[in-house]
Amino acid sequence: MTNSEAQRKQPVIAVYGANGHTGGYLLTDLHRRGLTPILVGRNADRLRAAADAAGLPDAVIRVADLNDRAALIAAFRGADVVISSLPAYVEIGEPILAAAIDAGAHYTDISGEQLFLRRVLDEYGTRAENAGVTVVSGITDSNLSGDLLAHLATRRVTGPAEVILSHLSRSGGNGSKGSAKTILASLDWFLSGGWHYEGGEFRTGPVARYTEITFPDSTTPTQVAKFAQPPVLTIPRHSDVSYVAGALDVEILGHLSGFTPAALDDMPDAPDADLRYYLVADVFGVDGGVVRGLVSGVDSYRDSALMAVEAAVRLADGTAKPGALAPAEAFDAEDFLNSLAPHGITWQITPQ
């Protein structure tokens, strides 16, 4: 194979939102893989600066505003996959998704919002299928890990299983302003706990079970409350479950209740440097068997970017079926998680 032939076989990945904090990690990993992306956004100078900072002087720059559908479709033409890197997808995420599908490109993103993911699955699945492309939304350290872990862990107990998902910061570090914008856009939904899955349907409202979790590195239980984890929506698509819910430390939820636009204005753009985390999937079988799936990560933002690029590269090979899919429907769960090990992201499933 000649060098030119090898180059033609490289996937073409477009990134919208490349000049943000997580966008920088996306570009760094694309550069590490030897891929030259298409960078799309509103400001050509900022995109060029982001490309240069990531060592991608040959990156293609295309300008398209979120409100310009024709420009977005034109910008994504020729891309195998579009990665969307935005805050508050529930407010501004749909134009990128729709334009990617209309341009004939597979799509993934780093959203963390149940409301957006439900919209993707319910309203864009048929559209993506008809276009012959695959959409996998919500590729983050929490969402992808939770979905893939639950897929593997539920198969180690007698079903239908009950699944509790929780994300735990190991350092207590603060997130980015982009994450804060996401929270503010759906604050009432986050505080309400969002959807859980029970009795074959998605439900809102409080839940009375699993109010305490003993987290890794702790010998005492932590009080938790229901939280709007997006994998609640995807796990029932591929696993034998009777109940799925997200959980979060009630102390953290208490901090969210006082969050305001004024507090957002005072936040720094970049997050803290130490953002180690655990993603915990506790799975309970009907016969009393219990297993815990655990992903241990290095940096929530970096790791989400690594996962999104890995997902994009896998989507580019065209083996996933068209439509809007859960991560475990699109990818081999064990193989995907194992691919993250060189970056210090580890996983395990153990009996409890």
Rank of each mutant, 00 (worst) to 15 (best):
V244T: 09
V244S: 08
V244W: 10
A245W: 02
A245E: 12
A245G: 06
G246F: 00
G246R: 01
G246H: 00
G246Q: 01
G246M: 01
A247C: 13
L248M: 13
L248Q: 11
L248P: 00
L248S: 12
D249I: 02
D249T: 07
D249N: 13
V250W: 00
V250T: 14
V250H: 03
E251G: 13
E251T: 14
E251A: 14
E251M: 09
I252F: 13
I252H: 10
L253D: 07
L253T: 11
L253V: 10
L253S: 10
G254I: 06
G254F: 05
G254Y: 07
H255K: 15
H255W: 12
L256G: 01
L256F: 13
S257L: 07
S257G: 12
S257Q: 15
G258H: 09
G258I: 03
G258N: 11
F259A: 12
F259N: 09
F259S: 10
T260K: 02
T260D: 05
P261Y: 04
P261F: 03
P261E: 05
P261R: 02
A262P: 02
A262C: 02
A262E: 15
A263L: 14
A263Q: 13
A263F: 03
L264V: 06
L264D: 05
D266Q: 14
D266E: 14
D266I: 00
D266G: 14
M267T: 10
M267F: 09
P268C: 08
P268K: 06
P268A: 06
P268R: 03
P268V: 02
P268N: 06
D269H: 04
D269E: 13
D269W: 00
D269L: 08
D269P: 00
A270R: 13
A270T: 12
A270D: 14
A270H: 12
A270C: 01
P271G: 05
P271W: 05
P271Y: 03
P271T: 08
D272M: 10
D272E: 13
A273E: 15
A273W: 07
D274I: 08
D274S: 10
L275A: 07
L275S: 03
L275Q: 11
L275Y: 03
L275F: 05
R276E: 15
R276Y: 05
Y277H: 08
Y277F: 12
Y277I: 03
Y278Q: 08
Y278I: 00
Y278W: 13
Y278A: 06
Y278D: 15
Y278L: 05
L279S: 11
L279M: 15
L279Y: 12
L279R: 14
L279T: 15
V280D: 07
V280T: 09
V280L: 13
V280Q: 08
A281I: 07
A281P: 08
A281K: 10
A281D: 12
D282T: 06
D282E: 14
D282Q: 11
V283S: 09
V283P: 08
V283R: 07
F284W: 00
G285F: 00
G285R: 04
G285M: 01
V286F: 06
V286A: 14
V286N: 12
D287W: 00
D287C: 00
G288L: 06
G288M: 04
G289I: 01
G289D: 12
G289E: 12
V290S: 04
V291I: 01
V291K: 02
V291D: 02
V291E: 02
R292K: 05
R292Y: 01
R292V: 06
G293Q: 03
V295G: 01
V295P: 00
V295T: 08
V295D: 02
S296R: 12
